[in-house]
Design a protein around this nucleic acid. Structure first.
Lengths: 117, 117
DNA sequence: ATTTTTTACCTTGCTTTACAAAGTACTCTG
DNA sequence: CAGAGTACTTTGTAAAGCAAGGTAAAAAAT
């Protein structure tokens, strides 16, 4: 175990856990392809790389949470535009509740911390 | 890939990412041993099992984020009581900032979602 | 006093997954 | 058509969660 590597990565670990959720939220707004999803995530400080995003999208696809259709691009090869399936929409609602729970739990722990420091 | 298994686990994945953070927060309040950490996590709906918690505590220990001392128990074998090292305290402050960023990012995405649905 | 139960911590084997890096393929520009 | 840019995929490696089983100490039951 490389200590520094471990320590450095805890912060990114924290973000990664919410990655599927963030991606479903982004796709729920409008049909969008991988390149623009990456940009949206970066805009929100949720840094991901291709090697993570593409397999993740394919997992969501084969779990029938996403569908996609090919669309021509004016500046390169065609793109896969993703959309939520009804199963995906349903899950998104559930994740929203789960997020609210987590948000509440962590913020409650934080408020204890901040009282004592 | 088992679809249902994958779908079922996204919610817990979300929580897991914040696990180290939550554990450091809990330990920051007072010296505490694994059994009581489990109870605190459950109280906050952050469900974890022994097979996850013990290796995690050991990783935090070998990264010098935690220290521990053995204490006698009145109802069984001795317990390892964990405490934050100064390195752990420093990391906790950094994680607090990272959490606030994540919280802000996700809640911003959510507010877009809720506007459109 | 020995056995059983409870409590506490640890380990093993399996599976999932993030990521870097390399690969494939399409399209536009010159 | 060669090269640059864009888009999607695959491979190999390492990290980590979890179920299940293991070790050990102390208390309770017999």
């Amino acid at each position: 175990m490389n200590k520094d590597k471990y320590t450095d990565n805890i912060q990114s670990q924290m973000r990664k856990g919410s990655l599927e959720f963030a991606i479903l939220l982004i796709i729920s707004r409008k049909k969008i392809y991988a390149g623009d999803i990456l940009k949206e995530l970066k805009k929100n400080k949720l840094i991901v790389v291709e090697g993570t995003l593409y397999p993740l999208l394919n997992r969501l696809k084969s779990s029938e949470l996403l569908s996609h259709e090919w669309k021509e691009s004016k500046s390169g090869p065609p793109r896969k535009y993703y959309d939520l399936t009804s199963k995906g929409k349903k899950l998104l609602k559930a994740l929203l509740e789960a997020w609210k729970d987590l948000d509440h739990s962590i913020n409650s722990l934080i408020s204890h911390y901040e009282k004592n420091s």
